[in-house]
Design a protein around this nucleic acid. Structure first.
Lengths: 162, 162
DNA sequence: TATTGTTATACTCTATAACTATA
DNA sequence: TATAGTTATAGAGTATAACAATA
């Protein structure tokens, strides 16, 4: 029924025959990045830059550290990105009058325009990816991603092994 | 109906309200890595090492470059990994008698044991992730990953924009 | 001359800690 | 003394090109 490598020789198929999730998610992410990079480059914005604009399009943020955590980055890592975005007039970064240590971060109208233009192009590309799925698969896939991306390692119970 | 940031204020929900796929897939991959790393460390094998063992458990490979491409790596990048695996007795690496430039790569019995033990632990952890999904979502999610991970950028047609 | 594997180099990303300015 | 932001440094990961052995 199965050969030496453990693959099934008959036509049956079990979910446990699948590859590890990581072995499938990794190439998918690479594919998404390959699709997005040319679009971002055409608009002269980096991946982190787009990520910052996306976060700020949901509303202003009071400190850089808060913003960094929201996009899964480090506070030291986004400084260069914020410099670029500010120089390009895509965000404003002003000291909070009530606490001059903090920087009030806000997207500008032009930043919003840029972010939404980029998103529209990315969505168009994503459409051609999702078009390879059936409607059922597509809906469930997106829903599953929303659920799983909200989990953190601490949410996982131990289940015997490991 | 929607506020300034474009979010819907009523209870309706559209798929287009979702985040970009990359913004969801990235944290999922990070979660999977966070789950796998402790398991791999306990067995003293690296991520690339496990990836190599997994590929070779499907059958031997005649050249290192072929193996590298199969796991989405560079031929120069896996050399250190192959050295470690060989030193640990997990793979064999012998010059092909017919073409002594090539190295015949094969997993050893111990390598196979290790790989399958690691996989079992990873699968157990993945179970607790997938348990957050409904059965329908789970099946479709895995099927969608299988489809999407098989795509390459060239498979994508241009669709107007970008 | 072409191919396989290896080594060397530089470049990017990231993590850590030290520093400043404000509180 | 503690916090927000910045800078500096070192480390890991990766990409590129040059090299040795074999064909």
């Amino acid at each position: 029924m199965t050969d030496r490598a453990g693959r099934r020789r008959d036509s049956t198929r079990r979910e446990s025959d699948r590859r590890d999730l990581g072995a499938m998610v990794h190439p998918v992410l690479r594919l998404l990045i390959a699709v997005e990079l040319p679009i971002l480059a055409a608009h002269e914005v980096s991946m982190w830059g787009y990520s910052v604009l996306t976060a700020l399009d949901d509303g202003p943020v009071r400190t850089q550290a808060t913003l960094a955590e929201a996009i899964g980055a480090d506070k030291t890592r986004i400084i260069g990105t914020l410099d670029e975005l500010q120089d390009a007039g895509l965000i404003s970064r002003t000291p909070d009058p009530n606490d001059r240590r903090a920087r009030l971060l806000e997207i500008t109208d032009e930043g919003r325009r840029l972010r939404r233009a980029v998103r529209a192009e990315i969505r168009a590309k994503e459409e051609s990816l999702l078009a390879t799925l059936t409607p059922t698969e597509r809906t469930a896939f997106v829903r599953a991603l929303e659920k799983l991306s909200a989990l953190s390692p601490e949410d996982l119970p131990d289940r015997g092994l490991s």
